[in-house]
Simulated scan of single mutants.
Amino acid sequence: MITTATADRPPPVPLTVLSRWYLYAIHGYFCEVMFTAAWEFVVNCNWKFPGVTSVWALFIYGTCILIVERMYLGLRGRCPLLVRCLIYTLWTYLWELATGLLLRQFDACPWDYSQFRYNFLGLITAEYALPWFCASVLVERLVIHNTLRLRYHHAPGSQAGAGGGGEGGGCGGGGERERDGGTGGTERRAAERRAAERRAAERRAAERRAQSSRAQSSRAQSAEQPSAEQPSTERRAAERRAAEHRAQSSRAQKQPSAEHRAAERRAAKRRAAKRRAGPQEGIKPSTFLL
Rank of each mutant, 00 (worst) to 15 (best):
V33M: 11
A135Q: 10
I67E: 09
S54L: 01
L94K: 00
L123W: 02
Y128E: 04
I65A: 04
K48E: 13
A38E: 06
L82W: 14
F120E: 08
G166D: 11
L142V: 12
S54H: 12
G163S: 12
G100C: 07
G51W: 03
T147Y: 01
E127I: 03
A57M: 15
H153V: 11
G74F: 11
C109R: 06
G77Y: 02
L142I: 09
Y61P: 02
F30N: 09
W56T: 11
A135C: 14
L82H: 13
L138Y: 12
L97Q: 05
G62E: 02
A38Q: 06
Y113S: 04
V139T: 15
E140T: 01
F30Y: 13
G166M: 09
F59R: 04
N46S: 15
L150G: 05
N46R: 13
H153S: 07
G100P: 00
V83D: 04
R76Y: 02
T92S: 10
A37K: 11
F116T: 00
L150H: 08
C109Y: 02
R104L: 03
G163D: 15
V42K: 10
Y88P: 00
L148K: 01
W95D: 06
P50N: 15
G51A: 07
F30G: 14
A155T: 08
C79W: 08
H153D: 07
T92H: 05
G62P: 05
R151F: 08
R117T: 15
L148Y: 02
Q159P: 01
L103H: 07
V68T: 06
F41L: 12
A37T: 09
E127V: 02
L138A: 08
T147V: 14
R117I: 06
Q115S: 15
H145I: 00
E69L: 00
A38Y: 09
V52E: 13
H145S: 08
K48Q: 15
D107N: 15
V43A: 13
F30Q: 11
W47N: 10
I60G: 03
L94W: 13
A129G: 06
Y93A: 03
Y88W: 05
L58C: 05
W47L: 14
K48G: 15
Y118D: 09
V137P: 00
L81N: 01
L148G: 04
R104N: 13
C31I: 11
F120K: 10
A108R: 13
R70Y: 14
F106K: 08
F41Y: 14
D112I: 04
Y72K: 01
N146G: 02
Y88K: 00
P156Y: 06
Q159K: 11
G161N: 07
T147C: 11
N119M: 09
L81P: 00
P110D: 08
A38I: 09
Y72L: 01
C85I: 01
R78K: 12
